[in-house]
C-alpha cells in the first residue's frame, strides 16, 4: 500500500488519523467533545454498516430465492419477523418460538462436534505419553496431567477442602491462577499489538515511515 496521491485518498487517511487522535484524546488527556464526537460517529457508522449488511444478506439468502419460486424460504422470513414481537409486552410469547428454534438448532449443531475435539481428544492427549522424552516434553506431560487433575479437584464443591484434598485443591487453585495469568498476558499482548498498529499508522500518515 503506497501513500495516496489523489485528494480523496489523502482526505481519507487524514480523516482516519484525526478520528483516531480524537478517540485517543480520552486516555491521553480526558473526556472531551472531540472524543464524544468520534465515539458517536464510530458507533453510528458501525451500526449503519451492520444494518446494510443484514438487509443485503436477507435479500440475497431469503427474499431473492422466494421471488425465484423457492417458497420454502418463506419459513425463515416469517420466523425472523416473529422475533420482533419481543418488543411487545402482550405478544412477547410469539418471539420465543424462533428463539427456541435458533437456540435448539445451534446447540444440536454444536453438540455433534464437541465431544470428539473438546472432550475425547483432549483426554486422550492428556494421558498419552509424549513421543519425545526430552526434559520439556516430560515436564509438560506431567504438568498438564497433574494440573488437569488438581484443577478439576478444586471444583469438588461437595467436599470441604481439608485433609487429603487440602493441598491438591490449593495447588489446583494456583494452577488455575497461572492459567488465567497466561490468558491475561495474551490479552495484554493483543492490546499492545493493536496500539502498535495505530502508532505505526500515525507515523505513516505523517510520512515519517513509508506506508
Amino acid at each position: 500500500m503506497a501513500y495516496p496521491t489523489d485528494v480523496v485518498g489523502i482526505l481519507g487517511i487524514w480523516s482516519a488519523l484525526l478520528l483516531m487522535l480524537m478517540i485517543y484524546s480520552y486516555p491521553l488527556y480526558k473526556e472531551n467533545p472531540f472524543f464524544r464526537f468520534a465515539e458517536h460517529l464510530f458507533i453510528g457508522l458501525a451500526l449503519a454498516i451492520a444494518v446494510i449488511t443484514a438487509i443485503q444478506t436477507t435479500m440475497r439468502m431469503a427474499v431473492t430465492p422466494v421471488l425465484g419460486g423457492d417458497i420454502v424460504y418463506v419459513i425463515p422470513i416469517i420466523l425472523g419477523f416473529m422475533m420482533y414481537f419481543i418488543f411487545s409486552s402482550d405478544y412477547r410469547w410469539v418471539s420465543r418460538y424462533p428463539i427456541a428454534i435458533l437456540v435448539g438448532s445451534a446447540i444440536g449443531l454444536g453438540m455433534r462436534g464437541v465431544i470428539i475435539p473438546n472432550i475425547l481428544t483432549q483426554i486422550i492427549n492428556t494421558i498419552t505419553f509424549p513421543k519425545s522424552t526430552d526434559f520439556m516434553s516430560m515436564f509438560n506431560f506431567v504438568y498438564i496431567a497433574l494440573g488437569t487433575l488438581f484443577a478439576v479437584m478444586y471444583f469438588l464443591l461437595t467436599y470441604e477442602h481439608k485433609g487429603a484434598i487440602l493441598y491438591p485443591t490449593r495447588l489446583g487453585r494456583w494452577l488455575i491462577m497461572i492459567g488465567l495469568g497466561a490468558y491475561y498476558g495474551n490479552t495484554v499482548l493483543f492490546r499492545m499489538s493493536m496500539l502498535s498498529g495505530r502508532a505505526q499508522y500515525l507515523l505513516q500518515v505523517l510520512r515519517i515511515i513509508p506506508m
Binding site: 492459567g179 490468558y183 495474551n186 490479552t187 499489538s193
Partner: peptide, 15 residues
C-alpha cells in the same frame, strides 16, 4: 489474535 492463542493451544497439541 494473541488473546485467543491459549484457547486454541490444546486443539493444536491434540492434533
Amino acid at each position: 489474535i494473541a488473546m485467543i492463542y491459549s484457547s486454541y493451544q490444546p486443539h493444536y497439541k491434540a492434533g
